[in-house]
């Protein structure tokens, strides 16, 4: 049985409050599922059962902070393996022997100042650009979200999904359905507007959706949240943790420091001899 309108609204508030408290991924889903079940079974008013959503989220975040860390899903062999990648532009070395290994169930952040080669590295990983030396091995399907959304202004969002989905072997209906689900996770409902009429943030959401369509095992995301508002930014990272929980290998180019403490690896291209550092969760 699904909760009524008041309960559904309270659950939405709880979801947002949990993310603000940095409770996401598996914990976020679990708390929401348990609260939803309780409200459905008991028929209680959520304010009576749990109190205000914000307070309840804060309470849970405090408890989880003191709780033993949930063991992450088992980390397998590398799905993305970058070995000794070198790239020089007009005599200027950009990438000097970059190594990176990202397993299924891991999130890697690529950081560094402007012009240090973050986007170039992702383009090399996607096979859109050749390195001067080095190799990249990808295990499973690959999804790439470029920094500048490569979209057709006069097509609708769903038409993009159908087109990209066709390449991934999805029927038009499957592509639309899967795309709508991914869009909902980013708090976006695609409508019939042409892509050229969408805001920058919404175009970026479509950019992310297209990269993730068909559930590729490896996701390369090049600063995909440009133009996102605060809530969308949180939705995006929530989605990244979901992908990690599902066992995908995710690489995110980012300038934003607030999520770095939660990723599994950080590749700082601003440092000499860039090699990814493994972080404990």
């Amino acid at each position: 049985m699904s909760p009524d309108g008041a309960a559904a609204g309270w659950l939405d508030d709880l979801g947002r409050a949990l993310r603000r408290e940095n409770v996401d991924g598996w914990h976020h889903d679990q708390v929401l599922a348990e609260a939803r079940q309780h409200l459905a079974d008991s028929g209680e008013d959520p304010l009576v059962a749990f109190g205000p959503a914000v307070d309840y989220a804060r309470l849970l975040a405090g408890e989880l902070a003191g709780a033993p860390v949930t063991p992450p899903p088992s980390v397998g062999p590398a799905r993305l393996l970058v070995e000794g990648v070198v790239k020089t532009y007009r005599g200027r070395p950009v990438l000097t022997g970059v190594d990176l290994a990202v397993a299924g169930g891991e999130v890697a952040a690529v950081i560094g100042p402007n012009g240090v080669g973050k986007s170039t590295l992702l383009r090399i990983c996607a096979g859109l650009e050749s390195p001067d030396a080095g190799s990249v091995t990808v295990t499973g399907g690959l999804g790439y979200c470029p920094q500048r959304p490569a979209l057709v202004d006069l097509l609708r969002a769903e038409e993009h999904m159908e087109l990209v989905g066709a390449g991934r072997g999805l029927s038009r209906a499957e592509a639309r359905r899967h795309g709508a689900r991914l869009a909902a996770d980013l708090d976006w409902v695609p409508d019939r507007r042409l892509v050229g009429d969408l805001s920058g943030g919404t175009r970026q959401k479509l950019n992310v959706v297209l990269a993730a369509l068909g559930d590729p095992a490896v996701l390369l995301l090049d600063e995909p949240y440009q133009g996102f508002d605060g809530e969308s930014f949180l939705d995006f990272w929530e989605q990244v943790w979901h992908w990690r929980d599902e066992g995908r290998a995710v690489v995110v180019v980012t300038h934003r420091p607030e999520q770095l403490k939660r990723v599994d690896r950080v590749l700082d291209l601003g440092r000499e001899g860039a090699v990814a550092r493994r972080r404990s969760r």
Binding site: L128, V152, R168
Partner: peptide, 15 residues
């Protein structure tokens, strides 16, 4: 020319 923008993405998608 319009295709050149989106073709790399479609190529990666399996086309």
């Amino acid at each position: 020319l319009a295709g050149q923008e989106i073709d790399p993405r479609l190529r990666l998608s399996g086309f």
